[in-house]
Amino acid sequence: MKKYIDSGKKDTRSGFGAGLTELGKTHPNVVALCADLTGSLKMDDFKANHPERFFQVGIAEANMMGIAAGLTIGGKIPFTGTFANFSTGRVYDQIRQSIAYSHKNVKICASHAGLTLGEDGATHQILEDIGLMKMLPGMTVINTCDYNQTKAATIAIADHHGPVYLRFGRPKVANFTPENQSFEIGKAVQLQDGNDVTIIATGHLVWEALQAAETLNEQGISADVINIHTIKPLDAQAILKSVKKTGCVVTAEEHNYLGGLGESVARVLAQNNPTPQEIVATQDTFGESGTPEQLMEKYGLNATAITKAALKVMTRK
């Protein structure tokens, strides 16, 4: 079993900020827009280094999406930054028409996704954004798992032509993927090789999946663990290859079970190789105030929940 070491807890949003700082140096056409959340999105460095390429739009996200779409005309690569809730649901029609349907090269970068936003509560904890964004034709949807991966993804999407939704979060979490890794959009990352059960996780749940795999290993169960950072386009090949070995699968995500990663995986399996699946996700509910740990415990989004789901799905083979 491979050993993954947490090099020190860091927030994924800081990975985004670091990636953007890099892009500022390497990509003169990258511009950034923010809706009054520059500090929260860790865009301060980019703003300080490139004031002429940074656009503070104020608390006006709809306008931000439109301006971003317009900036692409003339060859700019705009990165928008605000919370996930205000990056998606609040501006869905602007994204749909001015960005997705118009196929504009806009990178919608969304922090504070999911329950781990914590104490601010349900008004800010979007659990529907993956579904909203993956339904848009031509939209690439990425949900990264730690600081290093978020930084790598931020840099990678600048060279991908087309609209991208990049989802990350607020809390400090384990940083365990390699520094300066290459990031391939649409390519799953195999984290553990196992034969008894497949665990496919995205975002903050990837680390939890690794912890669950260790617990299962202690019980003599070997889990195949896959980090799906790109939910669309989904790496169907990696999923099918894994379930061929294991015959059952658990998906794990910080998102509603409706519209999320679990459903995307279920579709691939139903069409190609029907396989028992358990979905670790929120159960069609809004969130609430609390610490990230309390919320992930209450809503069943941690290693314990993944372990339980793995044991259950193995009985359904």
Partner: peptide, 20 residues
């Protein structure tokens, strides 16, 4: 240069192009 029909989005897009 842009899809339009759902109203209210053109000025924002034009601002972006003007910045560009």
């Amino acid at each position: 240069r842009i899809a339009s029909g759902s109203l209210g989005q053109g000025i924002s897009v034009a601002i972006g192009a003007a910045h560009s």
